[in-house]
Design a protein around this nucleic acid. Structure first.
Lengths: 144, 144
DNA sequence: TCGGGTTGGTTTGGTTTTCCAACTCGATTA
DNA sequence: TAATCGAGTTGGAAAACCAAACCAACCCGA
C-alpha cells in the first residue's frame, strides 16, 4: 500500500499561504498597509510571526521589501504582481465571510464594481465568460 | 492607543477554514471522498488532526457525518450546502496553484466547463456579469 | 544634553498545536 | 483462530505560536 497523497495545486497553494496570519498579511497589503507597524496593528498578529510570514512571502516572490529611508533603515512591504494574483483567493474568502459569517451589523466593508453596483464576486469561465453554476464543471482528468 | 484589529470577513473565514489540513479535507470531499480512510490516504494528514478538523467542520455546519452502517458503526462525511459554498475558495486556490506553482508535468488535473472549454475560473461581478480586471473594484467603505 | 518617542524588528520563555507511530475496538472474512 | 478493516485514540516529541521585553538607530523638544 503506497502513500497515495494527492499532489494537487490546492495543496501547493496552501503550502505557500496556508499557515496562520499569512493571508491576513496579504489582505493588509491589499488594503494599502505598507509598514510593519500597520501590519502588526491591523492584523493583531504576533510580531515575530509577522516577520516570519513577510520573509517567507518575500522568499517566494509574493512581496518585496523596499527601503524607503536609510539612516535609520526603514522598509515598506509591497505586493508583487505574483502577490496581487492572490486577489481572487482573498475576494472569495471575503465573499464567503460576508455571506455566511457576518457580524450583527452586516459585512464590515463594501466594494463597488465599475458598473456601479455593489461588488460581489462570482466565478466565471475564462473561455466563454459565463457565470458558473453548480454542475457546470466536471473533472476531466483525475488526480486533482 | 486601542487595538485596531480589523474584524473582517477574511479573518472570520480564516478562523473557520484557515488551519492546516482543513481545506485539504474539504478538497477531498469535493473530489468525492466520503470515508475517513480515503480522506486520510489522499490528504496524507495525521489521523488525529483530520478527526479534529472533521468535527470542527461538522460543528460549524459545513460537513455532516452520516452513519452508513451500524454493527460496526461506520460513517461517511458529506459537504452540506454551506460546505459546498466553499467551492469558489478551493477553485481560486487551485487556479493559483496551477498557474504559478505547477510541477514539472503541468497541472495535475483539469476540469471542463459545460461550454466545452477547459475550465479556468475568473472572477466576475454578480450584478453585471462582467469579468473583473484589476482596477475595476474600489473600496466603498473602509474597515474591511 | 537628557529623556522620550518612533520604527522595525529580535529575543526570551513558555503555551499550544501538530505530528507520528502504535494501539484499540467491534465486527467480518479466510 | 487469525488476519483484516474502518474509524478512530493515545502518548510523547517536535514545531508553531504567543506576549512581553528588549534593542538599535535615529529624531525631537526642553
Amino acid at each position: 500500500m503506497t502513500t497515495e497523497v494527492r499532489e494537487c495545486s490546492v495543496a501547493r497553494t496552501l503550502e505557500l499561504v496556508g499557515s496562520k496570519w499569512t493571508l491576513l498579511v496579504v489582505r493588509e497589503l491589499f488594503l494599502g498597509s505598507r509598514r510593519f507597524e500597520e501590519i502588526a496593528r491591523f492584523t493583531g498578529g504576533p510580531r515575530d510571526i509577522l516577520t516570519d510570514r513577510l520573509r517567507r512571502l518575500e522568499a517566494h516572490g509574493l512581496v518585496t521589501r523596499v527601503q524607503y529611508e536609510r539612516r535609520p533603515p526603514r522598509f515598506e512591504y509591497h505586493l508583487t504582481d505574483l502577490g496581487r494574483s492572490l486577489a481572487p483567493i482573498i475576494a472569495t474568502m471575503r465573499e464567503f465571510g460576508d455571506r455566511h459569517l457576518a457580524g450583527d451589523d452586516g459585512p464590515p466593508a463594501t466594494f463597488v464594481h465599475s458598473c456601479g453596483a455593489e461588488y460581489h464576486p462570482v466565478l466565471a469561465c475564462r473561455a466563454c465568460g459565463e457565470v458558473v453554476r453548480r454542475g457546470d464543471v466536471e473533472i476531466a482528468d483525475a488526480a486533482i
